[in-house]
Write a protein that binds this DNA or RNA. Structure first.
Length: 271
DNA sequence: CCCTCGCCCTGCTGGC
DNA sequence: TGCCAGCAGGGCGAGG
């Protein structure tokens, strides 16, 4: 499930193939994903040169020399396949570069998206404008988090999934960060104490940075046609571990549903 | 404004 | 072996 670290790893994998390169062919194989593809997608991208790649939250940005930026979201099952042996089911968009490399956007569940946005207006484009601070940047502070959680009755787990509070966290990394910080996902936002905030910020940063490092360590694999990513799964301490022993105290990890999504936590370590 | 819920979509898993 | 219900969940809109 692509969250911030997976999108970051994806962009690092794509950069050598796309940055500075001209797109010689753009093939759309279905009308769209979550939303229809922009009607002028092929026209705008064909012959365009990619000037840079970047990330905002879980969005990947492919900047071009045509004053338009292609913004993609991987949703639940999206991934880019690099130089695949053959076109596969769910390869919805295929870019070919001047150098002959093929990049296929594959998304079985089609929760992802592809948009074209005026490069000069990226910051004001709706989905990006509403985002909170980057968790690995300087703006995610204990003070910011404290202000965002203050007075909220929603569980801290649900609030951390809100992209307007912190941009880029998903279900897995929220569960992992809360475990590292010793905070129960069920605690109300308003019940997160001042002294809990710096450890929570640190936990968020640490788990994301460690996951990116793990993804980066398998970036060589990413460049293979099968496109498999290192998903950091071996390092999950609570996610998907219902009934297994907490690495910290040995108590069994429990699972609960919050806002229609699974939460995993250690009831002994997380209060 | 705050909060919850349901929808979208398909591959995988487990039960029978 | 085959069938099928249930589950996975990010973003977004509807409704209380």
């Amino acid at each position: 499930m692509p969250e911030l670290p997976e999108v970051e790893t994806t962009l690092r994998g794509l950069t050598p193939y796309l940055a500075g390169k001209r797109l010689s062919r753009v093939e759309v194989r279905r009308a769209g994903l979550r939303r229809p593809f922009p009607p002028d997608l092929v026209q705008v991208l064909t012959g365009a040169r990619v000037t840079a790649l970047s990330r905002r939250a879980k969005y990947g940005l492919i900047h071009t020399d045509r004053d338009q930026t292609m913004v993609f979201h991987l949703g639940m099952s999206g991934r880019w396949r690099i130089d695949p042996d053959a076109v596969e089911k769910h390869d919805h968009l295929i870019l070919t570069t001047e150098a002959g490399h093929v990049l296929a956007l594959n998304d079985a569940r089609r929760f992802g998206s592809v948009d074209l946005v005026e490069s000069a207006a990226l910051d004001t484009w709706g989905p990006l404008a509403a985002l909170g601070p980057e968790p690995l940047g300087p703006d995610l502070t204990a003070a910011h988090l404290g202000a965002a959680l203050a007075g909220r009755v929603s569980p801290v787990k649900v609030l951390l999934l809100d992209q307007g509070i912190v941009a880029g966290l998903g279900n897995i990394y929220v569960c992992e960060a809360l475990h590292r910080a010793g905070i129960s996902p069920q605690r109300a936002g308003a019940a997160v104490r001042q002294k809990d905030l710096p450890p929570l910020v640190r936990a968020i940063r640490d788990v994301l940075a460690e996951s990116i490092a793990a993804g980066g360590s398998t970036i060589r694999d990413y460049a293979q046609p099968n496109g498999e990513l290192g998903y950091f799964a071996a390092n999950w301490r609570v996610y998907g571990r219902e009934g297994e022993a907490c690495h910290g105290c040995g108590a069994p990890i429990v699972r609960g549903v919050q806002a229609s999504r699974s939460s995993f936590w250690c009831p002994a370590c997380q209060k």
